[in-house]
């Protein structure tokens, strides 16, 4: 099992939350608190949840995504999900949330996060 991690980046009215590790009910709490703190501080226009490094996720991860969507919407911010693995995408799509949360794959903005993460390792 891997610790859940979240790295937050702000760029041009976007808040990118790069989430990694195992997301369950236990680990989601810290990730949630970290994102919400930054969300209220920065008040971005777009929140991007970058999920390429998520190794495991159950419905708590889905709750994390849906909860952030709701919180962001309250402050006029829209949410995107970026680069989910096949397993993560399957869980998210069980809820039908792709109908109101756009899914992005390998966009320029998330590639920046990739490169930054590679630089750290």
């Amino acid at each position: 099992m891997k610790q859940a991690t979240v790295k937050l980046h702000t760029a041009a009215n976007r808040l990118i939350a790069a989430i990694g590790g195992d997301i369950d009910h236990h680990s989601a709490a810290d990730v949630r608190a970290a994102i919400d703190r930054e969300l209220y501080l920065q008040k971005p226009q777009i929140l991007i949840l970058e999920l390429s490094a998520v190794d495991f996720m159950d419905s708590s991860g889905l709750g994390l995504v849906l909860g952030r969507y709701t919180k962001a919407k309250e402050i006029g911010c829209s949410t995107r999900v970026a680069n989910p693995t096949a397993a993560v995408e399957r869980i998210l799509k069980l809820s039908g949330c792709e109908k109101y949360i756009p899914f992005l794959q390998d966009t320029e903005i998330t590639r920046e996060v990739y490169n930054e993460r590679k630089g750290e390792n």
Binding site: A28, R32, S59, S60, L62, G63, T70, I91, L94, S95
Partner: peptide
Amino acid sequence: GERGGMGFAI
């Protein structure tokens, strides 16, 4: 609002 209600569905 932090639980998706999808546990049994999963």
